[in-house]
């Protein structure tokens, strides 16, 4: 059940110049967190950052009561969250949002662009737990963006592509050879990343008649369905909140022009 809870900064792992994992520990037990769930984090001591910031929950350790959040610096809020002191209190509203659906049987394909890999570690763990075979395709602009290849390789085969060719295959994820093999019997494709990438993935999934779920990133004020700011349009022409109806959507239910 969602709640407001105070955490303390336990530490950071910097992944490259502008991306880090922040570890937050709590004195209270953590509620169950599902892959795809997110947290609204209040940036402490920074009145210039008025609203909370929504982030996927990257990892959770129930025994040590620690949440790990992947953050890429894109503005004042994400920068400020990267320079807190150890032990500094941070308020979270979590766990928010829905989760991915998991097929009875694999294999499944996970396609992440840049920071879009944030919801997929928990999904990878869940898939492994359910013995669903998963393949990962991680994309980035340069090798600098591909800091999670080793982490994900514990949960399945990992392919990579970069736009500049500095790691993996050169090009965009949707050009990767793993997608060209029409005999690959994926039962589900999961995707998260920049909008154009997710739409390209969704188009490909439709052509191959494979169900596809996308985790959307929209600007939010509240994160729990009160403000109605973060909407996306459905195939039926309705505006639904990404925070409560999503962030995970089956792409066939979205009004995407693909």
């Amino acid at each position: 059940m969602k709640r407001i809870q105070d955490f303390k900064v336990a530490g950071y792992t910097w992944l490259n110049r502008d991306s880090y994992l922040i570890e937050l520990e709590s004195e209270q037990d953590l509620p169950g967190i599902a892959p795809g769930n997110f947290a609204e984090i209040k940036v402490p001591g920074n009145p210039g950052v008025f609203l909370r910031r929504p982030f996927s929950i990257f990892d959770v350790d129930y025994d040590y009561r620690v949440l790990s959040i992947f953050i890429k610096i894109i503005g004042e809020g994400t920068r400020a969250l990267g320079s807190l002191n150890q032990g500094q209190p941070v308020s979270l509203i979590y766990p928010l949002g829905n989760t991915f659906s998991i097929p009875e049987k694999g294999p499944v394909l996970i396609i992440a662009g840049g920071s879009g890999m944030a919801p997929f570690l928990l999904l990878g763990k869940k898939l492994k737990e359910r013995s669903v075979n998963a393949t990962y395709l991680l994309g980035g602009r340069t090798s600098e963006d591909l800091h999670m290849i080793e982490t994900f390789s514990d949960y399945g085969q990992v392919f990579a592509s970069t736009e500049d060719g500095s790691a993996g295959t050169q090009g965009v994820v949707t050009d990767h050879e793993v997608l060209k093999d029409k005999t690959l019997p994926f039962r589900m494709i999961y995707t998260c990343g920049p909008d154009p990438m997710m739409k390209a993935v969704a188009r490909l999934a439709r052509q191959r008649n494979i169900p596809c779920e996308a985790s959307l990133e929209h600007m939010m004020a509240c994160g729990f369905g009160a403000c109605l700011c973060c909407v996306t349009e459905t195939a039926e022409g309705k505006n639904v909140c990404v925070c409560t109806e999503g962030p995970v959507f089956n792409v066939k239910n979205l009004a995407w022009q693909i």
């Binding site: 008025f50 600007m219 909407v231 349009e233 505006n239």
Partner: peptide, 9 residues
């Protein structure tokens, strides 16, 4: 969408 923009305070 977009129907929200954060501003100073």
């Amino acid at each position: 969408y977009p129907r929200m923009a954060e501003t100073a305070s």
